[in-house]
Amino acid sequence: MVWTACPRTTRTSKLSRPSTTTTSVAATTTQPGPRPITTRTTKNMIDTQTHDKLMAMKLTAMAEAFLELQKEAPSHQRSFAEKLGYMVDQEWTARENRRLSRLLRAAKLTSDASLEDVWTTPGRGVAKATIRELATCKWIEHHHNVICVGKTGCGKSYISAALAQAACRRGYGTLYSRVPRLVEEIAIARADGSYPRLLARLAKLQVLVLDDFLLAPLKDTERRDLLEILEDRYDHSSTVIASQLPTDKWHAALGDPTIADAICDRVVHNAHVLILEGQSGRKRKGLNTNT
């Protein structure tokens, strides 16, 4: 029996089936990225921060001037020094106006008087040169006083108020008060315990206007209070006094010879005296009624 070798069958390896998976290209939607920061955007951010910082430092006028300069046309651009000077000028002017308004309110003026409007007609008793000299406020720098005397309506109160306004415009702390009301305030202060504080406040004033001085007889306590006020102010500040009585009659009107000597000595000897004459200003402004 013959054995025959069978041909060897080789097992074919199973071939890997090609992948039928298809790569689907997803539709990609482009998302908008952050806007690029341009030079103009950066400048606007810096300008806003600068404005906010100026406002935080309470430089309001300078901040407004800064915004105003940003709106200027390129053809009208100023130099850096001009822009800085303009902003500083705006801030300085605004602060001066606020200070003047504050001083005028504290002065309690009863009229909008001005030295430029003072009548200097012949026979009035006051010359233009005198008014121009008083307008310089050098009398305040030298701690001098001003006394206005004359009949009713001749303009004593007006000139006193005008001097007070001129002092405010120069930056001096000022108060306008009628003597009859001032002595009432002093009496109230004495009763409620604020008398020392009132005297201290009056002493700190650089200009004190006392209108209607000796319009009525003063009591003993009122004379002494007036002496205390004038004593605290002597050679340190200036006082403006308006009175119907000439200075040579003050001694008799004050009553007490000792206090009268002390008051006159502290007021009259270093004072510019204006003796006003002429007809009443109220009569000139009044209605001309011929009956």
Rank of each mutant, 00 (worst) to 15 (best):
D117P: 02
L198W: 06
N290I: 13
Y172V: 01
H143R: 06
I131M: 00
G153D: 04
P7M: 11
L115Q: 05
R95S: 15
I37P: 01
T247Y: 01
R98K: 15
R224W: 08
S19C: 10
H251S: 14
T174V: 05
E184M: 11
T10P: 06
N288G: 06
T10R: 11
Q77I: 07
I147P: 02
N97A: 15
T39G: 11
R266V: 02
F66M: 06
I188G: 08
R105W: 09
P122C: 10
E185D: 13
G85P: 03
E91K: 14
V88I: 15
R132L: 07
I186T: 07
T291H: 08
S19Y: 07
A113P: 04
R224G: 06
P7Y: 10
A187P: 01
D192F: 00
T39S: 15
T93Y: 00
A216T: 14
L254F: 02
D192S: 15
R124L: 05
Q31V: 08
A164I: 06
T60N: 14
K108A: 10
L276M: 13
V149T: 15
V25A: 12
C6P: 08
G281V: 07
P32N: 13
E96W: 05
I131N: 04
Y176D: 03
Y158E: 01
P217Q: 12
H269G: 09
I186N: 01
H272V: 02
D261P: 08
V268F: 02
K71T: 12
Q77S: 13
E91P: 02
R181K: 07
L214F: 00
K283I: 05
F66G: 04
A203K: 05
D192C: 09
L210N: 01
L199Q: 09
K283T: 11
L215Y: 07
D248R: 08
R8H: 14
F80K: 10
R201Q: 14
D225Y: 01
L69N: 00
P18A: 11
W250K: 05
R11H: 08
E133R: 08
L287G: 09
T29H: 00
P122Y: 02
T247A: 04
T289P: 04
T221K: 14
M57E: 11
A135E: 14
E64L: 05
A113Y: 03
T93C: 08
G150M: 00
H144K: 15
E82N: 09
Y195H: 08
W250V: 13
V183L: 09
G173I: 10
K219F: 05
K219V: 06
F80L: 14
R35W: 02
D52Y: 07
V267N: 00
A127P: 01
G173S: 14
V118G: 04
H144Q: 09
E116V: 13
P217E: 14
Y172H: 01
D220W: 10
R124E: 10
L198G: 09
H51T: 14
P18N: 10
M62I: 07
G255F: 13
A162R: 03
T22R: 14
T291W: 07
V207W: 00
D211V: 06
A166K: 05
A94D: 12
L274Y: 01
N44C: 01
S237N: 07
T60A: 13
D192E: 12
E96C: 12
A260V: 13
R266C: 00
R181Y: 01
V209D: 00
V207N: 00
K138R: 15
T28L: 11
L175Q: 09
R233P: 05
C6H: 12
